[in-house]
């Protein structure tokens, strides 16, 4: 078994189903995303069918089954951001990067993730690219951001 998976699992009792979500969160924290191997190991450890685990994980936006892109764009879609136009931003983002929210581009360069709320409502709408935050983003700002990351990715 993968060492990291083993370490995370050892912190939780075997066969106790309530450990599922924190286990998946911790493993994803370390691994970046959930692979088939991870689901199988967790399934065996907790005695939950692997499809059931996939079903649970697929329910939550926080779990990923593919790695992030080199440029991981997080877009806040909390109430405040929504009211200040996060939705048109998302539309532009998806159109220009040619990927859907929650997915990664085939070349592995970009990925988009929707965050329910980043807690920076006074700065809404908010976008994060890797570790850099952009506040009060307008559609014009977004175009610049996209141009920058596209240039950098070449």
């Amino acid at each position: 078994m993968d060492e990291i998976i083993g370490i995370v699992l050892s912190r939780y009792p075997a066969g106790k189903k309530e450990g599922l979500l924190p286990i998946l969160q911790e493993i994803q924290e370390e691994k970046g995303f959930l692979t088939g191997e991870i689901l199988n190991e967790v399934s065996a450890y907790l005695d939950i069918p692997v499809n059931k685990i996939y079903g649970v994980a697929a329910f939550y936006d926080q779990f990923r089954f593919k790695p992030h892109g080199r440029f991981h764009i997080q877009l806040c879609n909390g109430t405040s951001c929504y009211l200040h136009g996060s939705f048109p931003l998302l539309r532009d983002l998806e159109k220009q990067l040619k990927i859907k929210a929650g997915s990664t581009s085939r070349d592995g360069k970009f990925s988009i993730e929707i965050i329910p709320c980043m807690g920076a409502c006074e700065q809404s709408p908010v976008i994060k690219v890797n570790d850099t935050s952009y506040n009060k983003v307008t559609q014009e700002d977004l175009r610049k951001i996209i141009r920058t990351i596209k240039d950098k990715s070449e």
């Binding site: 088939g36 689901l39 939950i48 069918p49 692997v50 499809n51 059931k52 996939y54 079903g55 697929a58 329910f59 939550y60 089954f65």
Partner: peptide
């Protein structure tokens, strides 16, 4: 008792499906 299928996804995106 094998749980080969489950609801995958959420809300209007829900489907009965299998892993990946």
């Amino acid at each position: 008792g094998v749980g080969a299928i489950d609801i995958i996804g959420r809300g209007s995106e829900s489907r009965i499906g299998t892993t990946y």
